[in-house]
Each structure stands twice: as C-alpha cells, then as structure tokens.
C-alpha cells in the first residue's frame, strides 16, 4: 500500500474527478432527462380522450387496475370511502334495453364546475386541458365533490403510508384522475388506462393531443361519432364517448 505516496497533484485530480462524478455528471444527466418538465405547459397541446363503448368489454377492469397501480390507489377495503379515480359502469338503454359498459373518470371539462367552486383555487385546469387538484393548497372542503356532475372525485378519508412519489396523495384532500399528468410531463402520450386497454387488445380508450391531426384520439374521433355526457350543462368535456 502506497497511501503515503499520494502527491498533491494526484490528490487534486482525484478530488476533482470525484466531485465531477458525484455532483456535476448527475446534474447534467438529469437535466437532459427532465427537459419536458422544464417546458411550460402550453395551450398548443390539447389532451383529450375518447372512449368507444362498443369496444369496452364486459367484466374487463384492466383500466381500473392500471389506474390503481399507476397512482398507488390502494384501498382500505371500505368501498364507501376508498378513492376511485376511474370506475366501470354498467348501463341500460332506456329505449332499447341494450346493456353497455364504460369507464367513468374525470371528464376534464373546459368549463370545470369543480374549479369554479374551489375557494382556494386548488382545483385548477392546466393550459393543456388537464383538470387536477393541487395537493398543497386543497383544504378538504369537498365543495368540488358537490359540484362535479360526474362524481369523478374522491376524498382521502384516512391516513396513507405508501404513496408513490409520482402521485402525491394525502389524508384530508380531494383527488381525481389527472390524465396521468406525471407520465405526460415526462414525455409520454399514453395514460395508464389506455395502455392497459391496448394490452388487453380492446382499444376502447384512446388518448392523445387534439392539436395533432395524427394522434390516436383524433383518429378515433374521426372514425366514429362521439358525444359528451350531460352536454346540456355546456361544460365542454375533453372526455367523449362513442357508441352511446
């Protein structure tokens, strides 16, 4: 061992190298990876989703399970108080009595009643159309839940311990689908529910940027007529349904 032979020059070179490895390189690397996060959200991007009810398969809950996994929405086995960001509904046509199934989630309205009523502005709509809750300023008054016509929001009724860093949640705040904002901000253009639906081979859920003519959601909208739920309320939701 020649520890004592370390010259001043070697010491300085090794120290500088170590500093570079520990501090500078990770910083450069992370900057490269996080580039989309640095970009301001713009109204040039218009995130939207279309759900083809004819393709939604009876009994399939892949989208619900994917959402639970993506956002760490583990429940306490208390269905009345556990959060549900997306749920499956079974419907019967009043005229034809035809039975259909569809996923129900936050409809990401352009005129969102939840944001209108929120006293602190914690419920907000991003420039790209994503409606979400700022978990740092939500006071848990639940007025947005009273205002939502689609029952899309849940209140966190108890202590949580295993939240994901990608999906901050906390007791006493309201939460709902945010179109997988964390994924989107990291450069993806696919929500967890769409990915799961595609993996199952159903392709009932299509997501994408309305501003991009070649996006999956635009192709879906072009192939089949679609409509908004409760269009009488003029909320201009970004989630539309085909086949109902």
């Amino acid at each position: 061992m020649n520890k004592n032979n370390l010259t001043r020059r070697d010491f300085l070179i090794k120290s500088a190298s170590l500093m570079t490895v520990v501090y500078i390189i990770p910083d450069l690397v992370s900057k490269t990876e996080a580039k989309p996060l640095d970009e301001k959200v713009s109204s040039k991007t218009k995130w939207a989703m279309n759900i083809d009810v004819d393709k939604c398969t009876k009994g399939c809950t892949a989208c619900v399970e994917a959402c639970i996994e993506e956002n760490g929405l583990y429940g306490m086995d208390r269905p009345e108080t556990d959060s549900q960001w997306i749920r499956k509904l079974t419907l019967k046509d009043i005229k034809t009595e035809k039975i259909v199934e569809l996923p129900m989630l936050c409809q990401h309205c352009e005129n969102p009643p939840c944001c209108d009523v929120c006293p602190t502005g914690a419920s907000f709509r991003r420039e790209d159309g994503i409606v979400m809750v700022n978990q740092h300023t939500c006071i848990g008054c639940r007025y947005c839940m009273m205002a939502c016509p689609f029952k899309a929001r849940s209140f966190v009724h108890e202590n949580l311990t295993e939240q994901l860093t990608s999906a901050p949640r906390g007791k006493g705040c309201v939460e709902s689908c945010n179109f997988c904002a964390n994924r989107i901000d990291h450069g993806s253009d696919m929500t967890a529910c769409e990915e799961a639906c595609q993996k199952e081979g159903h392709k009932a859920i299509t997501f994408g940027d309305l501003s991009n003519p070649k996006s999956r959601v635009n192709e879906s909208l072009a192939s089949k007529p679609s409509r908004r739920l409760r269009s009488d309320l003029k909320l201009k939701q970004r989630v539309t349904y085909s086949g109902i």
């Binding site: 749920r87 499956k88 079974t90 419907l91 019967k92 046509d93 259909v100 739920l229 009488d232 109902i244």
Partner: peptide, 11 residues
C-alpha cells in the same frame, strides 16, 4: 349522469 341510460351496476 346519463340522459338516455339508467345505471345498472357501479362500484
């Protein structure tokens, strides 16, 4: 939520 449908099942 739906004008022309009734909800048969929901979690």
């Amino acid at each position: 939520i739906f004008n022309d449908y009734i909800i048969v099942e929901s979690s």
